[in-house]
Design a binder for these strands. Sequence first.
DNA 1: TATTGACTTAAAGTCAACTTCAAGTTGTAT
DNA 2: ATACAACTTGAAGTTGACTTTAAGTCAATA
Lengths: 152, 152
Amino acid sequence: MIYTVGEMAKKLNVAPSTLRYYDKEGLLPFVERSGGGIRMFKDADFEYLAVIECLKQAGMVIKDIKVFIDWCIEGDSTIEQRLNFVDNQRRAVIKQIEQMQQTLKMLEYKHWYYETAKKAGTCSVHSDMNEEAVPQEFRDVREKVKGLPCVK
Amino acid sequence: MIYTVGEMAKKLNVAPSTLRYYDKEGLLPFVERSGGGIRMFKDADFEYLAVIECLKQAGMVIKDIKVFIDWCIEGDSTIEQRLNFVDNQRRAVIKQIEQMQQTLKMLEYKHWYYETAKKAGTCSVHSDMNEEAVPQEFRDVREKVKGLPCVK
DNA sequence: TATTGACTTAAAGTCAACTTCAAGTTGTAT
DNA sequence: ATACAACTTGAAGTTGACTTTAAGTCAATA
């Protein structure tokens, strides 16, 4: 099965211009062209672009992705670099997940905070709430944001 | 304890210009000034900025953070909006964590891929590797990237 | 074969989030 | 009192990741 840039873009739920941009930046050296110069995406390219999407969403910038692809093209002489690269990326993602989980904890606290405030009709229920009324899992977060100006 | 913009920036490990930018964008309405106009950050502002950092790293844009802060200032009449906002944000973060875990899985596969290739001195060990030699946890990822042009 | 919608490129435009610059002010240390 | 590092502002510049525009080409259909 062969797809034009528009068809592949629809499959990936991105704008066609995004794929053209990736191509221009050297991220798609494997995409072949028709005699008239039209890009012909294959099914494997869908998975390939999904991997790129994955790396991007992990916080990798396009230039770094290009570096990695260039190493892949260069062949076995760059295995060490690629191992290194993947390792750094892996560590960065682990760190990011940890941070995200911190953020989630805070948002869950805030969720409880505003649910409670909503029931009471005012945020001031929280200022004279005794420790026991605060669910166990929120006590440490609450302690941290206690002194904040307003955005608890 | 009181800090200047430079001192607080150092504590937060950001550039002073970043804090001035946040201030200009309305993210720091609680930071007071000296008679001469110099920002005076307090200890509570450190926690406050840490929360902002958290929201930012969760993918929230500065304008949205400002909207939230403005709601906080407005008071109890905006509790419902804030609950809604926090809830959406929470859902988005959960989704992001799930995606990150997918990415991590892929990077762990690649880590194994290049470790193995390094030992063998070539990536071609993978093309004629039988299923049993692939660790259980990598088999599904491997299947997905099997047909990829080069960047497996 | 003519039309038409989707493709092509290069170049310019946009947006968020900063950063840098220029010109001037503050406040501490000698 | 004077120097000097760090502060202030507004405005312009930068970077990354696209998006839009303009001018033209391709290829499937009537």
